[in-house]
Structures are given as C-alpha cells and as structure tokens.
C-alpha cells in the first residue's frame, strides 16, 4: 500500500515537473511570437481606437486604412520592386552557382581540386574589409546598381562546403551508369544529381531567398539613389523617422487620419509577411540536420 502511494507520489511529481517545463517553454515561445502578434494587431486597428491610448490586444474596430496608405505610396512600390529584383534574380543564381562549384569540388580526381578547395575555404577566413570592397565595387562600375547587393552573395564558401559533402554522399553508381549510357556531364548534373538533391536544394533556395529578401546594409553602402533602396532600408527609414511624410511621398489624404505608429506597424508587417509565409517550409528541413551534420567537410 505504502509502495503504491509512493509510486503515485512519484507520478504526480513527474507530472508537475513536466507541466512546469511546458509552461516555461510556452512563455519563451510567447516572447518570440508576441511582438509580431502585437504589431499585426495594431496595424489593423482603427486610428481613433489607437489614439484613445488603450493597450491593444485585439482590434476593437478593424481598419485597413494603414495598409491602403502604405501600399499606395510610390516609395513603397519602388522599394518592393528593388527587393523583388534582388530576391528573384539572386536566389536562382546563388543556388546554381553554389551547387555547380560544390559538384565540381565533389569530384575526387579533378585536377586542381585541392588548391581550388583551399582558395574557396580561405574566403571564409579572411575578408578584405568594407573600404576595399567599396573601392572594388566602384572599379567594377557596380555602384548604384542592384547587382552590388546580388553578386557578392551569389557564392559562399560555407554553402559550397555543405553542398559538396552532400554530393560526395550520393551513390556514384548512378552517375557511372548514366555515363556509360552516353549521358553528357551537364545532363548528368541536370537530370540525376540535382533531382536527387531536391530536399537539400529546397532548403538552400529558401535560405538564399530569405537572405536576399533581408538585404539591408549592402544597399545602404552601395546605393546613393534613394529611389533604388530595397524594402528593408525603406522600412527602417520609415520606422525610425520622426516625421513620416519626409520619407514617403503621399498623395492620399489618409496620411492625416492614420496615426504614424499604425503606419509604421503596417510597414513592418508587409516586410515580414513573406518570411512568415516561407518559414514553415524552411523549418521542415532543420531537424534533418542539413545545416548541422554537414559542417564536417
């Protein structure tokens, strides 16, 4: 009897411990998510409710005016165009260039493999620094172009290394069989290697897309024409500016009725929504250790 009681007490203790753990983790997760929820809620709130100074947890009165205002500004249109250009051109370039170089380096008998490998790795160890990069961009004639934000990120040593060890793990028999059947190297790469690497490529595509979407400092540094600034720069200028009409040229008279704070929040939401949309697809792949297990190389 006493033994049974003890066992029950133990169970209660475990249950309690488990609950405390669950609550701690819930609170932590809430800290990560609540800022977004708050900003989203306020961005949909009617201006008059907001100005009453109440703490907003749920829009008492919904309004899309802030979004109308944000999306109608020509500044926003330009910024979105810049970000879309950088992301849509940069992402496929990044994935193809990295995969191509990684595939090349995965060939054990390739003449010059060791030295090229070392040269690729060295770029991870040492960078010339901001001013030499700037002068280089200027020499290449890429200042005030979006290419200055795309090209330097189109190939990265870390990604090449991870992809290389992935390609090295693919069964060599398939490629050899295709070769005997008379397939050209480019075709083997296109119809055998890439399809076999779909999950890995999907992950890196999303990583590249997120990082191009988040382009910020390269634009600040290499662009002087403000109408070419991507979304992140535009967002930051809007949020941190005291007088919002300095930054955006607005023809709409909504600017007088919508509080600037709500506008700022709507801008944040617009800049963050694409990330929130692709994120679930990204998250699927973390657990597979794509990023962690492959660092070995």
């Amino acid at each position: 009897m006493a033994g049974k009681n003890k066992k029950l007490g133990m169970k209660a203790k475990i249950f309690l411990g488990q609950s405390v753990l669950d609550i701690i983790l819930f609170l932590l997760a809430a800290v990560m998510v609540v800022p977004f929820i708050y900003v989203i809620m306020v961005s949909f709130t009617d201006g008059t409710v907001y100005e009453a100074g109440k703490l907003i947890l749920w829009p008492e009165k919904w309004s899309l005016e802030a979004y109308e205002l944000v999306l109608s500004g020509s500044g926003f249109g330009n910024a979105l165009k810049a970000t879309l250009f950088i992301t849509l051109i940069g992402t496929p370039m990044n994935v193809l260039f990295n995969a191509g170089l990684a595939y090349m380096l995965s060939k054990k008998n390739l003449p010059g493999r060791t030295i090229i490998n070392k040269l690729v790795m060295f770029t991870m160890l040492f960078g010339a620094g901001m001013i030499p990069n700037y002068i280089n961009m200027s020499d290449l004639g890429l200042l005030n172009t979006w290419w200055a934000s795309i090209l330097p990120g189109a190939c990265g040593a870390y990604t090449v290394m991870v992809m290389r060890s992935f390609f090295e793990g693919l069964p060599a028999e398939l490629e050899e069989a295709a070769k005997i059947d008379g397939c050209s190297t480019i075709r083997i790469f296109g119809i055998i290697v890439l399809p076999l690497s779909k999950a890995m490529l999907a992950t890196f595509t999303l990583f590249a897309a997120v990082s191009y979407w988040n382009t910020y400092f390269s634009a600040v540094m290499y662009l002087t024409r403000t109408d070419m600034y991507p979304l992140q720069v535009y967002l930051q200028k809007i949020v941190l500016s005291a007088n919002i009409s300095d930054v955006i040229d607005m023809s709409s008279d909504l600017i007088n009725t919508v509080p600037t704070e709500i506008m700022k929040m709507a801008t944040v939401v617009v800049a963050v929504v694409p990330i929130l949309c692709v994120y679930p697809f990204l998250q699927k792949h973390f657990a597979k250790g794509v990023m962690v297990g492959a660092v070995k190389g």
Binding site: K107, P132, P152
Partner: peptide, 23 residues
C-alpha cells in the same frame, strides 16, 4: 564540362572576395 559547372561560382569568389584584396 565539370569545370564549366564550377566556373560561375569561382568567378564570383574571384571578383568579390579576392579582387578587393588588392585594395
């Protein structure tokens, strides 16, 4: 053909990692 696949990536590293070093 294998080199051809690797060339774009190598060019990027050359132009944007190695070339700036002369600076």
């Amino acid at each position: 053909w294998i080199y051809l696949l690797g060339i774009p990536g190598m060019l990027i590293l050359f132009f944007f990692s190695y070339l700036p070093m002369k600076g």
